[in-house]
Amino acid sequence: MKPLAEMTPQELAEACARIMWEDDNASQALGMELVHIAPGEADMRMTVTKTMTNGHGNMHGGYLFALADSAFAFACNTYNQMTVAQHCAITYVKPGALGDVLTAHAREVSKEGRSGIYDISLTREDGTVIAEFRGHSRTVNRTFLTE
């Protein structure tokens, strides 16, 4: 691996994502894929399985929240500063359905000091938005990589 001081912002984001993914048992167990990473950005994809549906036959909101939260986590941890969620909110627009392939598109809105704000849109493959999520992040005193 290239020395930390010589990494581009993209290389740093990719290195942090690799380290996070190794220990992200929850996202892996739910069948999520990290399909894009860049500084302050991440896209996660997941297929709705039968175990993710509720009594109405729709995707359970908790699984949708988990997908958004995972994309949020990867987006805000792209700067080699470990970051956690401080506050999150989700608005459900349309239900997810069995077999849907959903993507959570996370992007940084603001990053100042130890705080950040990230918006995550959850869409079907046809681009239909089914939920919007906003996450507020807070950095902690730890890094992924050291010199």
Rank of each mutant, 00 (worst) to 15 (best):
residue 59 M to K: 03
residue 8 T to E: 11
residue 110 S to T: 14
residue 45 R to T: 13
residue 90 I to E: 08
residue 40 G to S: 03
residue 63 Y to W: 01
residue 44 M to G: 00
residue 26 A to E: 05
residue 11 E to M: 07
residue 50 K to D: 12
residue 64 L to R: 00
residue 118 Y to S: 05
residue 73 A to D: 02
residue 101 V to P: 09
residue 66 A to Q: 06
residue 51 T to I: 13
residue 79 Y to C: 08
residue 146 T to E: 13
residue 122 L to S: 05
residue 55 G to Q: 03
residue 99 G to D: 01
residue 98 L to C: 10
residue 119 D to E: 12
residue 17 A to G: 10
residue 57 G to M: 01
residue 99 G to V: 05
residue 19 I to T: 02
residue 105 H to T: 09
residue 50 K to W: 13
residue 90 I to R: 05
residue 16 C to Y: 05
residue 51 T to R: 13
residue 113 G to H: 15
residue 68 A to T: 06
residue 2 K to Q: 08
residue 122 L to N: 02
residue 61 G to T: 05
residue 108 E to S: 08
residue 137 S to P: 06
residue 47 T to H: 12
residue 123 T to K: 10
residue 83 T to I: 10
residue 111 K to P: 11
residue 50 K to I: 14
residue 145 L to W: 09
residue 34 L to C: 01
residue 113 G to S: 15
residue 10 Q to H: 12
residue 23 D to T: 08
residue 125 E to C: 04
residue 100 D to Q: 11
residue 90 I to F: 10
residue 79 Y to E: 06
residue 128 T to M: 04
residue 109 V to W: 15
residue 98 L to H: 10
residue 80 N to M: 08
residue 51 T to E: 14
residue 102 L to A: 04
residue 92 Y to P: 00
residue 71 A to C: 03
residue 42 A to N: 03
residue 141 N to I: 07
residue 68 A to M: 04
residue 83 T to Q: 09
residue 140 V to G: 02
residue 14 E to S: 14
residue 127 G to Y: 04
residue 116 G to L: 12
residue 146 T to L: 11
residue 50 K to R: 12
residue 87 H to W: 14
residue 125 E to T: 06
residue 118 Y to K: 01
residue 32 M to D: 04
residue 132 E to N: 13
residue 130 I to P: 00
residue 140 V to A: 05
residue 66 A to H: 06
residue 96 G to R: 01
residue 119 D to H: 14
residue 111 K to A: 12
residue 146 T to M: 14
residue 59 M to T: 07
residue 76 C to I: 05
residue 49 T to P: 06
residue 135 G to L: 06
residue 73 A to G: 07
residue 79 Y to Q: 08
residue 34 L to K: 02
residue 116 G to C: 09
residue 92 Y to M: 04
residue 10 Q to N: 15
residue 67 L to I: 07
residue 123 T to G: 10
residue 74 F to R: 00
residue 31 G to Y: 10
residue 93 V to R: 05
residue 4 L to M: 07
residue 30 L to Q: 07
residue 94 K to I: 10
residue 125 E to N: 02
residue 45 R to S: 12
residue 140 V to K: 12
residue 50 K to E: 14
residue 135 G to R: 03
residue 99 G to I: 00
